[in-house]
Amino acid sequence: GKMTGIVKWFNADKGFAFITPDDGSKDVFVHFSAIQNDGYKSLDEGQKVSFTIESGAKGPAAGNVTSL
């Protein structure tokens, strides 16, 4: 299901971020390909987002990341 959280930090050079979920679970890795914005895919620290949890090769990662 959809979860919500806050972007903890975003590394534009490497194209990934971490989200701190609102439910208090541990921070979730985000690859820029999961960001659903049109055009430039970036996130801002402190931004509120919704996302799903996908199981990636290196463990859980956020999918369908959308700005709220």
Rank of each mutant, 00 (worst) to 15 (best):
S67H: 13
G39Y: 08
D38Y: 07
G59A: 10
D22W: 03
Q36P: 07
S67C: 15
N64T: 10
S55Q: 10
A17G: 15
G63K: 03
N11A: 06
D27M: 08
E54T: 04
K58M: 15
A34P: 03
G1V: 10
G15Q: 13
V65S: 09
A12W: 08
A17T: 01
G63P: 12
A34E: 13
D13K: 06
G63D: 12
V65W: 01
D23W: 03
A62W: 06
S42R: 12
V30P: 00
G5N: 00
A62E: 13
S25L: 03
G39V: 07
D27Y: 03
F10R: 04
P60V: 04
L43D: 01
N11Q: 05
F10Q: 04
S55G: 13
G46T: 02
V30L: 08
Q47A: 08
K2T: 13
K26V: 10
G24D: 03
I19S: 00
S50F: 09
P21G: 01
A34G: 07
P21D: 01
D23C: 07
D44E: 11
E54Q: 03
K41L: 13
S67G: 12
Q47D: 09
A34I: 07
F18P: 00
I19Q: 00
V7P: 00
G5M: 01
F10P: 02
S50L: 09
G1E: 11
A17D: 00
V30R: 01
S55L: 07
N11M: 07
K58S: 15
E54C: 14
V28W: 05
N64G: 07
Q47H: 07
V30G: 00
D44N: 12
D23F: 04
G24N: 05
Y40M: 09
D44H: 11
A61C: 15
D38C: 15
S55F: 05
A62D: 14
D23P: 01
D13G: 06
G63V: 13
I6D: 01
Y40I: 10
S25R: 04
A57G: 13
D27K: 03
T52E: 13
Y40Q: 11
L43F: 11
T66K: 01
K26P: 08
P21E: 01
D23M: 02
T20A: 10
F32S: 06
E54W: 02
D23N: 06
D22N: 04
A17V: 13
S42G: 09
S33H: 12
M3E: 03
N64K: 05
A62V: 11
S55T: 07
A57F: 14
K2A: 11
I53A: 06
W9S: 07
D38Q: 08
K41V: 12
S25W: 03
P60W: 01
V49S: 00
V7F: 04
P60F: 02
I35Y: 04
G5T: 01
P60Q: 05
S50G: 04
K26W: 05
T4Q: 06
